[in-house]
């Protein structure tokens, strides 16, 4: 292992990690918003839109991100829709992630007991107040592990941004590999960089899960 080589290229990887993280988090944020919207459209049974949400979720969950990205980046411009690489990255990740987030929110909502909804209704809350104050907070608490799993999954998926010619971690490594020939060091740093990015997310997920468990969330009913 050539430590000098590794040391001298840390800034390159830091720059790549910053690209990965920035666009990854951007996509994750948009995916959460889109997922929540889709989940609510289905929950409130909004005509037409709930069907559209369902169709979108199936489409996004059953196709690879790589193919989605090629379609956005190399296919769409040929029919006159030109998007920058960065836009493709965020749109692609949002498109893929929104479906997974929607499913996480949905199973969270389903885990809230029906009687909770009825108790809210009996207080004369509107449907929106009911979901805002009673159902969603409980659903979110149950959905936290699934949501964090999605975040990790999506950040890993950003490794495909390299096909968009973005200088993310993957592309930084690939460029170094093809130019320098120090394959082992390059790949070692690549793995280490992803570990450094994702370990904190994973620790955060554990922490959140434990705190919620202590707070007595979840659907177990004590009599």
């Amino acid at each position: 292992m050539d430590w000098e080589f590794i040391g001298s290229h840390i800034p390159d990887y830091a720059a790549g990690a910053w690209v990965t993280l920035r666009f990854g988090l951007c996509g994750v944020g948009c995916a959460m918003a889109l997922g929540l919207i889709c989940c609510l459209l289905r929950y409130f049974r909004v005509p037409v839109l709930k069907g559209a949400a369902r169709g979108y979720i199936e489409l996004a969950r059953n196709t690879p991100l790589l193919v989605q990205l090629f379609f956005l980046y190399a296919g769409l411009p040929r029919v006159g829709i030109r998007l920058s690489a960065e836009a493709c990255a965020v749109i692609g990740l949002t498109f893929l992630g929104g479906a997974y987030m929607a499913e996480a929110f949905r199973s969270g909502l389903e885990s809230v007991e029906k009687s909770q909804r009825e108790a809210g209704e009996c207080l004369g809350l509107t449907r929106w107040q009911n979901i805002r104050y009673i159902l969603l907070p409980q659903a979110l608490a149950t959905a936290v592990p699934a949501l964090f799993a999605n975040v990790i999954f999506l950040i890993k998926e950003t490794s495909m941004f390299s096909v968009l010619a973005m200088m993310d971690l993957m592309n930084v490594a690939d460029t170094l590999r093809t130019s320098g020939g120090r394959t082992v060091e390059v790949l070692f740093m690549l793995a280490a960089a992803y570990l450094a990015l994702l370990l904190p997310v994973s620790l955060l997920a554990n922490l959140a899960e434990r705190r919620l468990r202590y707070a007595g969330f979840g659907n177990q009913r004590s009599v």
């Binding site: 009687s115 207080l123 004369g124 009673i134 409980q138 608490a141």
Partner: peptide, 23 residues
């Protein structure tokens, strides 16, 4: 239908399973 919530503000109900909001 949808306007039932106004009426429910005037009728109280309590169930066997308490259904306090746990959060």
């Amino acid at each position: 239908g949808k306007d039932m919530y106004r009426v429910r503000q005037r009728i109280g109900m309590v169930f066997q399973s308490y259904d306090l909001f746990p959060h």
